[in-house]
Simulated assay, not measured.
Amino acid sequence: MELTEKLGQEIIRRLSKYIDVPINLMNPHGRIVASTDHTRLHQLHGGAKDVIESQEPNIITNGNADDFSNVKPGVNLPIFHHGELAGVVGLTGRPDEVMQAARMTQGSVEITLDQMHLQKEAFFQERQWNHWLQRLLHPSDVDMEELAREAVYTLQVDIHKPWQVVVYQSSQPYELADQLRPSLETFHPLFILPYENHSVVAALPGQPVTIESEADVVIGVGEPGDSLAGLRQSYHQATEAINLAGVPGEVVYSASLKTERLINHIDPAVYEEISGTYRSLLQELDASYIETLHSFFNNNLKMNVTASDLHIHRNTLIYRLDQLSKKTGLDPRRFQDAIILQTILLKESL
């Protein structure tokens, strides 16, 4: 990376607020790319040429100014980036008076170049990761062998271990990704990436984790799975959990929705064939019967616990269950009938 005109002008703009002597920034060819004196732009600087040849500081006084073209008394210092000459910084004035400011300017420019290089590397790496993730999560066209090779040789990561995916749905995924990184980095994630303009996907290693909720963000957590196939599966589990029960500001775990997920994948035609008549009969019932069914199933078919939960007498509960059986043809106390009734209740809530 070398000193360019655009970068040099921005550096001059900022430094000139704090340094009250003329400043020139030259590229590796000795041409002035930025200066507090705009009349000197694009000129070749003899002191910079000397620095480029020797890669050592060049001190110009009234006594040797005639030895170099287009110079004034002052100090010219080399700017290095990763061991290579990236440019030259020059400050005009008595050398002993401007040397400290010149050193500070030299250091500021080198730090700026280092930071820009790191940002470019991070941006390039994130683009590689995003491209890799897009292909991994493609609905059908997935080449696991090629993705595994790319993970090892290009991304330089070990994907052959258990991964658990967390999906965050947000209207501002890039901002959210930056916000999440400090807390999720403690888990040593495989990646934390914005995905498809509406979500952030994080792949965390190891055992199941507890995820903290985020205000106004819908969060789904998949189950741990091995290698790339497990990572892909965990992602789909997390997104399905969001679709089934996602609520802004809460975390929903796929592992807690096994029954709901199973029911969600029932063939619609088969579901309609078996449940159609029963659904119609249930819809005709008073709301108290539906509330009774929900409580009865939530309390694992336990009569006393259900009666206490509904604040009714046990005999009242028995009467309601008898009526349910009469009106629908399904007795909630019979295991097979309970499965059909619970399936209808869950399916209608999905």
Rank of each mutant, 00 (worst) to 15 (best):
residue 253 Y to K: 08
residue 143 D to P: 05
residue 235 Y to R: 11
residue 295 S to A: 15
residue 125 Q to G: 03
residue 289 Y to G: 01
residue 227 S to L: 04
residue 52 I to E: 02
residue 326 K to E: 01
residue 275 S to L: 05
residue 269 A to M: 09
residue 260 E to D: 08
residue 223 E to H: 01
residue 37 D to N: 06
residue 285 L to F: 03
residue 332 P to I: 04
residue 259 T to A: 09
residue 213 S to H: 13
residue 63 G to F: 14
residue 273 E to Q: 12
residue 110 E to R: 11
residue 70 N to G: 11
residue 263 I to H: 08
residue 5 E to F: 08
residue 153 Y to W: 14
residue 348 E to D: 15
residue 32 I to K: 09
residue 134 Q to G: 05
residue 185 E to N: 12
residue 260 E to Q: 13
residue 64 N to I: 08
residue 171 S to F: 01
residue 250 E to T: 14
residue 153 Y to T: 10
residue 23 I to C: 00
residue 97 E to F: 10
residue 163 W to R: 04
residue 85 L to W: 10
residue 32 I to H: 07
residue 73 P to E: 14
residue 206 G to H: 09
residue 133 L to V: 13
residue 281 L to E: 02
residue 213 S to T: 15
residue 51 V to R: 11
residue 136 L to G: 07
residue 58 N to C: 09
residue 259 T to P: 00
residue 333 R to M: 09
residue 221 V to G: 03
residue 29 H to C: 02
residue 313 H to E: 11
residue 87 G to D: 09
residue 36 T to G: 01
residue 221 V to D: 06
residue 246 G to T: 07
residue 288 S to P: 00
residue 59 I to F: 09
residue 152 V to G: 00
residue 165 V to E: 03
residue 268 P to K: 05
residue 150 E to A: 04
residue 164 Q to V: 07
residue 177 A to F: 00
residue 99 M to L: 15
residue 225 G to Y: 12
residue 25 L to Y: 11
residue 61 T to S: 11
residue 280 S to D: 11
residue 210 T to Q: 15
residue 241 A to M: 03
residue 87 G to K: 10
residue 190 L to M: 15
residue 122 A to T: 06
residue 296 F to Y: 15
residue 303 M to S: 06
residue 283 Q to V: 09
residue 200 V to S: 02
residue 89 V to G: 05
residue 118 L to R: 10
residue 145 E to S: 12
residue 186 T to S: 11
residue 259 T to G: 01
residue 290 I to A: 09
residue 335 F to Y: 10
residue 266 I to D: 00
residue 72 K to M: 07
residue 98 V to M: 02
residue 91 L to H: 04
residue 15 L to P: 00
residue 85 L to Y: 04
residue 319 Y to A: 08
residue 306 T to Q: 10
residue 140 S to Q: 03
residue 18 Y to E: 13
residue 349 S to N: 12
residue 146 E to I: 05
residue 251 V to A: 01
residue 339 I to P: 02
residue 226 D to F: 14
residue 6 K to P: 00
residue 75 V to H: 02
residue 108 S to T: 12
residue 97 E to Y: 11
residue 240 E to L: 12
residue 280 S to Q: 14
residue 155 L to C: 09
residue 208 P to N: 11
residue 64 N to R: 12
residue 145 E to M: 09
residue 88 V to A: 04
residue 156 Q to F: 02
residue 324 L to W: 07
residue 127 R to G: 01
residue 327 K to D: 00
residue 140 S to F: 05
residue 79 I to L: 13
residue 317 L to T: 04
residue 66 D to Q: 14
residue 289 Y to A: 06
residue 1 M to I: 08
residue 284 E to F: 03
residue 252 V to I: 15
residue 210 T to W: 10
residue 350 L to D: 07
residue 165 V to S: 04
residue 286 D to H: 15
residue 205 P to N: 07
residue 199 S to E: 13
residue 31 R to W: 12
residue 131 H to R: 14
residue 190 L to N: 10
residue 71 V to D: 07
residue 296 F to Q: 00
residue 105 T to D: 00
residue 135 R to G: 02
residue 66 D to H: 13
residue 103 R to T: 10
residue 216 D to M: 04
residue 325 S to R: 08
residue 231 L to S: 01
residue 188 H to T: 13
residue 316 T to A: 15
residue 147 L to E: 06
residue 14 R to W: 14
residue 157 V to S: 02
residue 340 I to Y: 06
residue 145 E to C: 02
residue 316 T to K: 13
residue 157 V to Y: 04
residue 49 K to E: 15
